[in-house]
Design a protein around this nucleic acid. Structure first.
Length: 291
DNA sequence: TTCCAGGAGGGGG
DNA sequence: CCCCCTCATGGA
């Protein structure tokens, strides 16, 4: 039986695409634990040593071998983009290593990559994330999946379609556990469609940011997450309670998160989003008292 | 019991 | 512009 095998000759990121999997050989630049547990994504489960990830209506299992990670999936090309495999994280980490503050975070989260996530799913997810903890965010999103999505695997459901979500009233979102964010969800679904959201991609970061902040439940921080994890903008620095905490322990303490955001974007420029993710993962891992 | 979580909306000054 | 309050919910 002949299988088409596509080799990637990228010098720093070695991977092979096969019919039903991707093999990633650059294990220092790809670690599923770091990628999935660093807080950028809510659609994954860990079972034993295997990570299961289910963005939109896609599905993959990631397993570690001696020389590579195997991403088992029926849709390899989707996950090449999802895991940002054609981006050079060796170079990104090299550039960031010039900042003293990045030394330990880069070491600790060396296998982090910024995912390319679906815009609509990311918008809904991060609206739910506000003033909330990651465990409960995942609980609420899984409730939505189980009630409105399609079954993919045992216990795993696809993200609900826009049309399905549009049929729900506020009370339904409260039953899913969304709390006071239920009204944000109800309203934002009537403010913008997935297509309209996608069409914003051509705008500059600041224009795009202003459009997003106008949406219900989307403030400065959620907008920055959407810009980074969905639109893959590098010149944004989401400031949440963990980053706020980190900033005040390394720099002159400031209360105003907008000032903190501006200072950090000025400091890291186009690499802000990447820096943020290493710092967030490091800070949260050593300060958290839950999960 | 109180505090906290990948904050945002709204009112008053 | 800024400051202040409130908004569900579950875990520690």
């Amino acid at each position: 039986m002949y299988n088409e095998i596509i080799m990637c000759y990228n010098i720093v990121m070695k991977y092979i695409i096969e019919k039903d999997c991707i093999k990633v050989y650059s294990k220092d630049d790809f670690c599923p634990k770091h990628i999935l547990e660093c807080g950028q994504v809510f659609c994954y489960k860990k079972e034993g040593d295997v990570y299961k990830v289910y963005p939109e209506d896609n599905y993959a299992e990631i397993e570690e071998f001696d020389d590579f990670y195997m991403i088992k999936t029926s849709n390899p090309h989707y996950f090449v983009d999802f895991f940002d495999l054609n981006n050079d994280y060796t170079q990104i980490k090299k550039s960031l290593s010039e900042y003293k503050i990045m030394a330990n975070p880069l070491k600790f989260g060396h296998g982090i990559r910024i995912l390319n996530q679906d815009l609509f799913e990311t918008m809904i997810s991060f609206i739910i994330s506000s003033n909330n903890n990651i465990k409960r965010i995942m609980l609420i999103l899984n409730n939505l999946r189980e009630n409105l999505g399609e079954k993919i695997e045992e216990g795993i459901y696809s993200f609900p379609s826009y049309q399905k979500l549009l049929e729900c009233d506020e009370e339904f979102f409260k039953r899913m556990g969304a709390g006071y964010r239920a009204s944000y969800l109800y309203k934002v679904l009537r403010q913008i469609t997935p297509e309209e959201l996608t069409n914003l991609a051509s705008l500059s970061t600041s224009e795009l940011r202003n459009k997003l902040i106008a949406l219900s439940g989307v403030g400065p921080k959620v907008a920055d997450c959407l810009l980074l994890f969905g639109f893959h903008k590098g010149d944004v620095f989401p400031v949440d309670t963990w980053i706020h905490q980190m900033y005040n322990s390394y720099f002159n303490p400031i209360d105003n998160r907008e000032v903190i955001r501006k200072n950090l974007v000025d400091k890291f420029g186009e690499l802000s989003g990447y820096a943020q993710q290493y710092l967030f993962y490091f800070q949260r891992s050593f300060e958290q008292k839950q999960n």
